[in-house]
Design a protein around this nucleic acid. Sequence first.
DNA 1: AACAATCGTCCGATTATCGAACGGTTACAG
DNA 2: CTGTAACCGTTCGATAATCGGACGATTGTT
Lengths: 259, 259
Amino acid sequence: MSHQDSDGTGADKEFLSTFARGLEVIRSFDTETPSMTLSAVAEKNNLSRAAARRFLLTLQKLGYVSQDDKKFGLTAKVLELGYSYLASLDFSETVTPIMEEVSYQLGESCSALVLDGVDIVYVARIPRRGLIPLNLQIGARLPAYATSGGRVLMAALQAPELEDVIEKTHFEQLTAYTKGPDALRAELQKIRSDGYAIVDQELELGMRALAVPVLDRRGTARFALNSSSHVSSVSMERIAQEYVPIMQDAAQKLTDILP
Amino acid sequence: MSHQDSDGTGADKEFLSTFARGLEVIRSFDTETPSMTLSAVAEKNNLSRAAARRFLLTLQKLGYVSQDDKKFGLTAKVLELGYSYLASLDFSETVTPIMEEVSYQLGESCSALVLDGVDIVYVARIPRRGLIPLNLQIGARLPAYATSGGRVLMAALQAPELEDVIEKTHFEQLTAYTKGPDALRAELQKIRSDGYAIVDQELELGMRALAVPVLDRRGTARFALNSSSHVSSVSMERIAQEYVPIMQDAAQKLTDILP
DNA sequence: AACAATCGTCCGATTATCGAACGGTTACAG
DNA sequence: CTGTAACCGTTCGATAATCGGACGATTGTT
């Protein structure tokens, strides 16, 4: 027996498969199948019916799923799991007010986001009044390489981690302006010296976005603040000259606050 | 028979304790302890260090936790778990636009929420421009008994379920206006005949809230729409005469859309 | 009434999980 | 640079947790 895994069986002595499978069961509920019968859950997760039933009963006893006439569905309690993460960030008291101030000064939405693999994930958001073009809620994901927030966070990575992200990224020509890996590397250099990133219609035509990194006192990037606007409402020059100082000011305030 | 547990040991043949303990480990990360050493996790969850390590390594391999110099912390990926639930509601395409319309017409925030135990949980939200008095994000909880949304959803429950909720509720005199269990029962009767609920400063002084139930075509309440405003901005009469029809109109539109 | 498609339950077989014990690392102090 | 403290990593036999095939019960349908 090898003590390393990576053999086909994948059986790792310190991998709790029951736990991992249970998490998969939670994730197997999605838009297409918001509620499933026991058998459907079993099939979707490659479990025996008996096993699927054990997972569902466990989740039910814990309050994470409810049963409605043979069909099982998630309850709002599963949001508490994600909430553990948001609570561990502890934004609501300290960070949100500063973001509201930014949103007010710019007259635009303002979001906080972190890097997770090759994606950015929204962790806080102050929306702009009016119809929201991209309806991004907390937990929403976008590809890091094509977003301003993703770029400032990538720019803050160490070389090996950055290479890892770039390698795993699936570069797609989302608009005519979307940069590829080589142009991205050059852009990251610029971002490092500038201290902010502006992305002009690379994710979606008509949208411009600005982001700055928020560092803690040790100088490590904890998350990014971003704001996006329509091309019609603001020029690139105005973003660089008016928006950037406001965002950097907010980022500095946050640095002073963060533990 | 005796196939029921409820003996002290609690060992239930169809309860996957490894899974349940793993979920607890996720939830043990909170605002006070956003990152913990292996030993801290073990202690907080009454696990041996070896066991805690297995849970953490499993979570790490799945990408839900990351390790930073002996300290473990959740990653943004745990939000995906909660996202399974939001995806299963599938609000973003259909429900949100209607809520935006309501928010625009009323000039107030508009939220969608569901009942989970004795709490309501926000599942979608269109915020009002300006400083938000209660900064409620998706996943946030409030006590059902003192909120308009909670009341319309309680009013829609069957008698035994309703009794269960009332019994489990911890009634607190949150403001001078907060109703107790008896007044609540009477109020629920009124809500059933009116088809909407207005709560006047029972949760927080200065805040009034209106909610209507959203039914599916079979007539079961799926969630509630709510809107809250400052006492200074709108009278009770205006809520009843102007706001209610707009909300009920939106609820009807949603009924036609829902599967 | 027979059928099909579910779910619930049981129980011996299997293996996943457990934890005590030991060894290693780092940090700090004398 | 020895000693101590506070961590973490690893191992392995013991044990309990989990598995799943088989059968029975239920429900809805033709």
